[in-house]
């Protein structure tokens, strides 16, 4: 378990203030925030590369606040990989491996196979693609058997295909018991990987919780604006019967939605932006494949329109204009129809 208590870091005119969080051993912890909020500085502080001015960091109840970098057992994967350019992939991975020579060689081969770079062992980093380099960096960080793996925007430089494969790999590592702290500015990464999410703002943590808690119930305007998406539901995707090859059904809490996706059936999350949700007094005849009756539970003005929460069996948030609120007399207790197009719903595989 990683425990961060009231950590302050001051580095080159930038500061982190009173950072506290706990990462249980079986967690995949994502630090989500815009560029420049201090995510990378926090990772560097945890790994010992940036000095902690106040506070403490405990790893498995051992105080590592001021421990030497090489003794922390924290594996760090840089955004740009930072592979050693003068060493082959094999030597890069083997660099931090522990044990006898034969053990280190076997570790290198096993890790290369795990991350899918076994065929690249004799290549130099300069000859690798972005995805391959990221996999090698991951294998290299795993070689010393770190107690906690720190990932700095590991997917940001990858194309869509490589990103999907890397996500699957990270999930596998997590399932095998690896504790992970992952920083990113991409909420999809957070939703698809995290067991716990922390939102960072101006060198501090604005909110911590499970992805569903944070995305469905942002506690501040900053968090709500940053994550930008309020309708997040966990469920299962299934193929729709008939000839609608591009439409699948997604079931969450006993409610079935229609999603335009070509993702394979399986568990995942459905995301719908609140501005894509339409409210009306009757189910409209339109191209919207999703139409549900529900009851308004909350109406809240925001700087950009009004957020209306509708209970259709799950709570859905719609962002409508103030004029629509008056026209439809939207207030708690009002029965209303809620609709959105299948193409407005996004599916994220688990």
């Amino acid at each position: 378990m990683l425990r961060v208590e009231h950590v302050h870091v001051s580095l080159d005119g930038f500061a982190l203030h009173d950072i506290s969080f706990t990462v249980p051993q079986d967690s995949y912890f994502v630090l989500l925030g815009a560029s420049g909020v201090g995510k990378t500085v926090l990772l560097e502080a945890l790994s010992g590369l940036a000095p902690i001015t106040h506070g403490a960091v405990y790893l498995d109840n051992e105080d590592i606040t001021h421990a030497r970098i090489q003794h922390r057992k924290m594996g760090l994967v840089y955004q740009d990989q930072a592979l050693f350019p003068h060493l082959t992939v094999r030597k890069n991975i083997a660099y931090g491996a522990v044990g006898s020579r034969s053990t280190r060689e076997q570790t290198t081969i096993d890790l290369a196979a795990t991350v899918g770079v076994a065929h690249l062992l004799d290549r130099r980093p300069a000859t690798l693609s972005g995805g391959e380099a990221q996999r090698v960096a991951l294998a290299r960080a795993l070689a010393p058997q770190p107690r906690c793996l720190l990932l700095d925007e590991p997917l940001s430089a990858l194309d869509i295909k490589a990103r999907s494969a890397m996500r699957a790999l990270l999930r596998t590592l997590h399932r095998n018991g690896q504790m992970v702290v992952h920083v990113t500015h991409d909420y999809e990464e957070a939703l698809s990987l995290a067991t716990h999410v922390a939102i960072m703002e101006n060198g501090a943590i604005a909110q911590i919780g499970t992805p569903m808690d944070v995305f469905q119930h942002p506690t501040s305007e900053f968090v709500a604006r940053f994550i930008g998406i309020r309708n997040v539901f966990a469920g299962t995707l299934a193929e729709e019967s008939g000839n609608n090859m591009d439409i699948a059904t997604f079931t969450s809490a006993g409610i079935t939605f229609h999603i335009m996706t070509n993702a394979p059936p399986g568990p995942g999350m459905m995301l719908v932006r609140s501005e894509d949700v339409t409210l009306s007094s009757s189910c409209p005849e339109s191209s919207a494949r999703n139409c549900f009756s529900g009851q308004v539970t909350d109406v809240a003005r925001t700087p950009l329109g009004t957020e209306v929460v509708v209970d259709i069996g799950v709570e859905f948030v719609a962002l409508v204009s103030n004029a629509s609120v008056q026209q439809l007399t939207l207030k708690p207790g009002r029965d209303i129809w809620l609709s959105f197009k299948a193409s407005a719903a996004r599916f994220l595989e688990e």
Binding site: L49, H71, A82, F84, Y95, A141, P144
Partner: peptide, 23 residues
């Protein structure tokens, strides 16, 4: 030479002397 590479080597458990001679 990028200092980041030396730091990366340290996070892999290498001693400063090893980082100097190998990186």
């Amino acid at each position: 030479a990028p200092e980041r590479l030396e730091k990366a080597a340290l996070t892999l458990g290498a001693s400063p002397a090893r980082v100097f001679f190998t990186i």
